[in-house]
Nucleic acid binder design. Sequence first.
DNA 1: GATGAATGAGAGTTCATTCAT
DNA 2: CATGAATGAACTCTCATTCAT
Lengths: 215, 215, 215, 215
Amino acid sequence: MGKPAALGLTKENILLSAVSLFNTKGYSGTSVRDIAKKASVNAANISYHFNGKQGLLESCFTRFFESYLECLEMEADKLDFTPADECLKRAVFNVLQFQSENHLLARFVWREISIDSQVVREIISSYLMKERYLLKRFFEMGLDQNRFTSMPVSIFIIQLKSMMSMPFLNSQYLREVWHVFPQEQHFVDRYFTSLEQWIDQCLLIRSAVPRVSTL
Amino acid sequence: MGKPAALGLTKENILLSAVSLFNTKGYSGTSVRDIAKKASVNAANISYHFNGKQGLLESCFTRFFESYLECLEMEADKLDFTPADECLKRAVFNVLQFQSENHLLARFVWREISIDSQVVREIISSYLMKERYLLKRFFEMGLDQNRFTSMPVSIFIIQLKSMMSMPFLNSQYLREVWHVFPQEQHFVDRYFTSLEQWIDQCLLIRSAVPRVSTL
Amino acid sequence: MGKPAALGLTKENILLSAVSLFNTKGYSGTSVRDIAKKASVNAANISYHFNGKQGLLESCFTRFFESYLECLEMEADKLDFTPADECLKRAVFNVLQFQSENHLLARFVWREISIDSQVVREIISSYLMKERYLLKRFFEMGLDQNRFTSMPVSIFIIQLKSMMSMPFLNSQYLREVWHVFPQEQHFVDRYFTSLEQWIDQCLLIRSAVPRVSTL
Amino acid sequence: MGKPAALGLTKENILLSAVSLFNTKGYSGTSVRDIAKKASVNAANISYHFNGKQGLLESCFTRFFESYLECLEMEADKLDFTPADECLKRAVFNVLQFQSENHLLARFVWREISIDSQVVREIISSYLMKERYLLKRFFEMGLDQNRFTSMPVSIFIIQLKSMMSMPFLNSQYLREVWHVFPQEQHFVDRYFTSLEQWIDQCLLIRSAVPRVSTL
DNA sequence: GATGAATGAGAGTTCATTCAT
DNA sequence: CATGAATGAACTCTCATTCAT
């Protein structure tokens, strides 16, 4: 006897519970029963709605990366008529803001993609390629515009990504050891400032006038 | 039938296999049977030698953090008679080198400590507190010595830690997307240079003569 | 593949198989797989329906003691308007009859409660307290009615319980050594007669006219 | 490197620990490691000294039954020149006394022989046959001597055995519910008195002068 | 005699999933 | 759509025992 429930609510309900538990205990460490229990639904619904636990994982990844890439894409689209450093800074801000608003999902995704699973790789590889393409565009444009110093792009991007994701991946460490709270707006603003400064000092060539992103 | 085996080899054998599998599939995603199979020993040995799967995890953490903290401590001890920036840089280099040489263990540990498990927390909290103490010492000494700009220590340390650990946590991403290989000496040297530069530009006050660590 | 099976039959099926095996091999000596095999169901059903092997044990105990105590309670309720010896005799008969009809369960329960397990104790202690209360009522009523000799109640009850339970606990001994079959009606009747005689001769005072329970 | 230890002490040490644990947790519920730990010896010693866990069980049974049967045999030997009721009473007393002094062993043995194990049966069947022979002699002699009423021997012996063993099998019940302590001398004396009385009233023919056993 | 390392078997339990209702 | 019963596989861990030392 299926209870009515507001249409489509069960599915969203499951997803939210899953994100929360995956965030805390990891994908492998979470059982579908845990999720079902937290969502107050029958475990069979998970197989029904998401085609198994793995489908749930894919849904999470998709949901995350589509929004995440949009943060970058939105600013990359302006590269043709805006200084690259300003676009880059805005993109960084967008990403921080997005992660802060979805910190549970962010932590879980950044952690889980460090697992060497065939499955995970298949899901995310195209997203990561697109991310690579977008990030590179910022830098190549900056070089074209003579605003960025000539430096190894890969290293810089690795560092940028490190600094953007780490606070959210290790949110618990930040909270417990440094009493810093990545899900708060305050953190986003403060942290963004320091990334802005890093871009200015390590990436921008001296003659270029820093474009302070007025957010 | 208790075969002798080279004395004490079984235990080490298990540990290495465990690190390799934990690294690839995560702690929860790895079964003791997988480990035993990889180590070519009976699964019961894991409980016998490590008091269960969790004991194995603790052994990994302990092994990692004791070496890791020594990387920091070694240089912190010189703070009283050496410029803080030089000590800090040397510490950074030590950590990169250590992680590069133990990249499997490093990836696994940095990933796993982002899990909200009671168990993990109990094991690592004291290590993280010691790390915090050591890292803070570098910065406070740098301020005392008038070599570091006055900046929020917590943010800087978070960024430093991000940049030091991320390449190893996401080693697969680096390899596949950027063709950068964190376990190679070449990477350590190159990456260290860019961290050195970051320290010089974002942390050091202008008047201070940068101390190039001659490693 | 969840086969339907006749509704609720699986659970009862498991319980019966468990009683049979516990009876023969003891609780600790029986594995859940044995039980599942005997019941022709999947072993996981035991955890599902009874919350583990221990829950199965509790179900057995509950089932036994609730019926057993009813045998006593039924007659204790008549104590106010019936001679105590007659009530006692009827209660004894009820208990013998019940055990004979559930001899597998009876043997297993009487054996297992002699184990010093924390678990067992928690389950049965309230039942044993109720039993004590009921048994004492028979004797106190008999004394009030001037039908029972003044004797140490505890010793008498211990002996009564010994004689009521032992044939069922040691049913195999009775069968193999004395060719006496406690699960047969014949035994119940014959054995009851000798208990009746014991009550008359050791408990009743001489002047009281024995009340032969006409069962 | 075998520690010397007082000669043969390890074996006895193991046996005592085993009796204690078997008594509390049952044979199947006790592991050889538990026993070894309690005896502070290596678990391999149990296999060495007793040829496995089962051998330990056999040793316990043997030790118990040889003493137990001696309690009966000692008095059966006097049957030719002593009234049967006196012999029987003395035998009963001996058995109670022996069990009281070895209550841990007694409880465990009486419980364990109610298990339908092939193994147990093989060990004890000859002992039980000898017991049957001895007990029957008391009754047949009593009938020959015209001191016992003609009654079904099997029923009487079943009851006698019930009453003799039950307090020790259910010693914990006696302690916790009735505050009666079967291992104390006080209990032996008191309980024997009531068995004596039972023999007098239910077994002896009226004309026979009861032989109070002066113990 | 005694020990610690090692083993294969099996313990109880949980897993993700399926299916009739 | 939703559910509870059911499954087979896999989980971690403990078992009694063996054997070289």
